[in-house]
Write a protein that binds this DNA or RNA. Structure first.
Length: 733
RNA sequence: GCCGCUGUAGCUCAGUGGUAGAGCACUCCCUUGGUAAGGGAGAGGUCAUGGGUUCAAGUCCCAUCAGCGGCUCCA
């Protein structure tokens, strides 16, 4: 006699067990028709789920035309589409393709599979696979769930000879894997999700007759309810993500409620491709990566340098208003510095190798020192440092085998992976009173990190980048206010650049872990300050327990660009560790030393990454204040060249970046050429304009010319638009 | 770092083991023009690098380097 509670709070009672489909039908035929699944007490389930006791039920529906699908509906469709794609692949390639694991993702789904060595899946098969997928959808076969007892089910899977499915089943049952013995086997086990007592299978149609797969579900009722699906791309992956284990082929696909939405998604992908900052960056000559200079090293060419410089000028003016002071520091520092800060040797794999002094190396060579010994002496930590840190924190922060007598260590330098050690030493270089706190040190500091070669990507993942960095040394009482200041900076940047949509992630400590530096009270205060600051932004924010750094909570900004992609950009982090490690202090009103709290913040993140993002966000069509070339003068013919030059000079005098097309193309050709460069304003000048001391204006993005206006008025308008950093082109006749 | 794919003119790309190609860009000439490509000529190459197979390699094989996609990673 189940009583069902619906999302609106109403209840329905039934005199016998019913399926979720029955519940939907009892509410109305429209709902029954649209239903593709359900949520029982918050858990996503099949529509055919039998409800035999009291529970809360929400029906998951396919979206109505024009509506966007709910996350739950997409999950069901894509999870189901993964089965359909797998069936299609086995039909096209062969049944000896062994399926491993096929979950939905944010944008679709994938299925990892083992392809026997003599077979191959390539993009050449995509047409055939997509045709087969379409057929299966059209056949509208029911997803039929049935269960088998654990041992019978396992025996069956073993008989089928697919160890990957056996592994999945054993995991579902909470049993140790009999087939996967790699290093990731143990870690697949934490906090244990609820264990199943039986194994469930889904047939796409009739069990025994049609294709089936071990799967915990849930699925849409039948294949036609998926709407539209297709295979997208191929990639490789590893079983359990373990590179020493079997290599699998990951086949990506996606599914949408309608073909139209799928097509739109493909258009969006295409649009994203056109915005690729690597393509636009080359086309507009914004930056260059040179094989001879090195992987992951950005050369800012003149056009890109303009954008970067404008951004820096913009932010520098704000920093001045907020009371920051600017500092400059070198690109390297002594190894000891990074042993103090903790960056070395613990993160040595993510850094360029140390720069060891030639004399030290020669001396060791003369002694016949082995390579291993040299490395040990470079990486080791001096006794005094190990002692000092332990005294302060009361905790073992350096593994004992790193600790060596001072005279055995080799000195050297490291390319800096972060700016904070240098800034900490600047803070420590002078005494501080509570009266001059906070101390805000800002630097566009270039740092170097050894990213794995496969990770490098244009300007977005590089080995050398310049942070718009600053460290705010403040008292605990000042922390909340300083965080607010950082956020207002980020807000200003986003507003100026027209990034209207963003959200905030507040990384908090994991309450169950003791790995954090700093007292519980300090953390409580800092976390509260971060949350309070995030709240004042008036945008969506999420608390993310466990996402804090070990040294303090943080606020990350996630921005949506104009085509809806999310980018993690700026960050604000509270740090209790640095002042400890560097033994920083200020003198309080009680005439005793106190530890400052440090805030690291980089509103852009890095200049490289931010510019890469901006290129894609604007598709290369920068607002006037950022555009490398703001206005180009196009003389109708050589007869107007002298006037064009005068126009150019007037504009440059007004502070604009103006050029003149002195080529002998016709005006049509000059316009075409200039539009390729996405220049905000084009000024056509001919005898008619010269006579009036005027210019004929064309703004980027408008089909036709806007008419003519006096040169002086255009120059004023342009100057104003640049100075106000307007996001749109507004100078009009 | 791992797996797969790719590497030919500044850019985008053709190229069947037998003489290195096109379009755009560039230079020059003609054209002197009113809003998204006028016409012509010229110049431009270590076919990523290094080996190998072959009478002969841009093409086939191996290695290295780099790029792309993904995996793993991202203090």
């Amino acid at each position: 006699m189940p009583t069902i509670t619906l999302p609106d709070g109403k209840t329905k009672s039934f005199d016998k067990p019913v399926t979720a489909a029955d519940v939907a039908a009892s509410i109305g035929p429209g709902l029954a028709k649209a239903a593709i699944g359900c949520k029982v007490d918050g858990e996503l389930r099949d529509l055919s789920t039998v409800l035999d006791r009291d529970c809360a039920v929400a029906i998951v529906t396919a979206p109505k035309p024009g509506q966007t699908a709910s996350a739950d509906a997409l999950f069901l469709m894509r999870h189901s589409a993964a089965h359909v794609m797998a069936e299609a692949i086995q039909d096209v390639i062969g049944k000896d393709v062994l399926l491993a694991y096929g979950p939905p993702t944010d944008t679709g789904f994938f299925y990892d599979m083992f392809v026997p060595p003599h077979k191959k899946i390539s993009t050449d098969h995509f047409d055939a696979i997509n045709r087969r997928i379409a057929e299966i959808l059209k056949e509208d076969r029911r997803f039929t769930r049935y269960e088998q007892p654990a041992d019978a089910g396992l025996a069956r899977l073993k008989a089928e000879g697919n160890k990957y499915k056996v592994d999945n089943a054993e995991r579902a049952l909470g049993r140790p894997s009999s087939v996967y013995k790699g290093p990731k086997a143990a870690s697949a086990d934490p906090a244990a999700p609820p264990r199943a007592a039986v194994l469930s299978f889904y047939a796409t149609g009739t069990p025994g007759l049609n294709w089936e797969d071990l799967c915990r579900g849930p699925h849409v009722p039948s294949t036609a309810r998926i709407g539209a699906a297709r295979v997208m791309s191929l990639a490789s992956s590893y079983w359990h993500g373990d590179e020493t284990s079997d290599r699998l082929l990951r086949v990506y696909g996606t599914a949408f409620p309608t073909q139209n939405e799928l097509d739109q998604y493909l258009v969006q992908l295409d649009e994203a491709k056109k915005r690729d900052h690597r393509v636009i960056g080359r086309h507009l000559r914004l930056f260059h990566i040179d094989e001879d200079v090195g992987q992951g090293l950005i050369l800012w060419t003149p056009n890109g340098a303009v954008i970067r410089k404008e951004l820096q000028t913009f932010i520098a003016a704000e920093l001045k208003k907020q009371g920051y002071t600017e500092v400059f520091t070198p690109h390297i520092g002594r190894l000891d510095l990074y042993k103090t800060s903790g960056h070395f040797p613990y993160y040595k794999d993510a850094q360029f190798a140390p720069i060891v002094e030639r004399q030290a190396l020669e001396r060791l060579c003369a002694e016949g020192c082995s390579c291993a010994e040299v490395m040990h002496r470079v990486e080791g930590v001096p006794e005094r440092l190990a002692r000092g840190i332990n005294e302060r924190t009361g905790r073992q922060t350096i593994t004992p085998d790193r600790v060596l007598p001072d005279d055995r260590l080799i000195d050297g330098f490291m390319l800096k992976p972060m700016n904070c050690p240098h800034h900490a030493r600047i803070f420590a270089s002078a005494p501080h009173s509570y009266r001059d706190m906070p101390v805000r040190l800002a630097e566009f500091g270039t740092v170097y990190r050894w990213e794995q070669s496969g990770e490098l990507s244009g300007m977005l993942r590089v080995r050398s980048f310049t942070q718009d960095d600053a460290h705010l040394f403040c008292t605990e009482d000042q922390l909340a206010h300083e965080i607010q200041g950082c956020l207002s900076l980020v807000k200003l940047i986003f507003a100026t650049l027209g990034m209207a949509e963003y959200r905030v992630r507040v990384g908090l400590r994991d309450p169950d872990s003791g790995k954090y530096t700093g007292s519980a009270e300090s953390w409580d205060k800092a976390e509260a300050a971060c949350v309070a600051a995030a709240e004042t932004l008036g945008v969506a924010f999420s608390r993310e327990p466990g996402e804090a750094a070990f040294y303090g909570p943080k606020i990350d900004f996630v921005v949506k660009d104009v085509i809806g992609r999310e980018w993690q950009l700026g960050t604000v982090q509270v740090d209790y560790n640095m002042a400890l490690r560097f033994d920083l202090s200020y003198i309080g009103p009680d005439n005793a030393p106190h530890r400052p709290v440090v805030i690291h913040r980089a509103p852009f993140g890095s200049m490289e990454r931010f510019c890469g993002f901006l290129i894609e966000h604007f598709g290369g069509a920068f607002p006037t204040w950022l555009a490398p070339e703001q206005v180009r003068v196009l003389p109708i013919s050589e007869k107007s060249l002298a006037y064009a030059r005068r126009v150019g000079q007037v504009l440059r005098d007004a502070g604009a970046r103006a050029t003149i097309d002195e080529g002998n193309d016709r005006i049509q050709g000059k316009i075409k050429e200039a539009s390729d460069w996405k220049i905000p304003y084009l000024l056509v000048v001919g005898p008619r304009d010269e006579e009036q001391q005027a210019v004929s204006v064309r703004a980027r993005g408008t089909e036709k010319d806007l008419g003519s206006m006096p040169l002086a008025r255009f120059a004023d308008g342009l100057r104003d638009e640049i100075a106000s950093r307007r996001a749109t082109l507004n100078v009009r006749p």
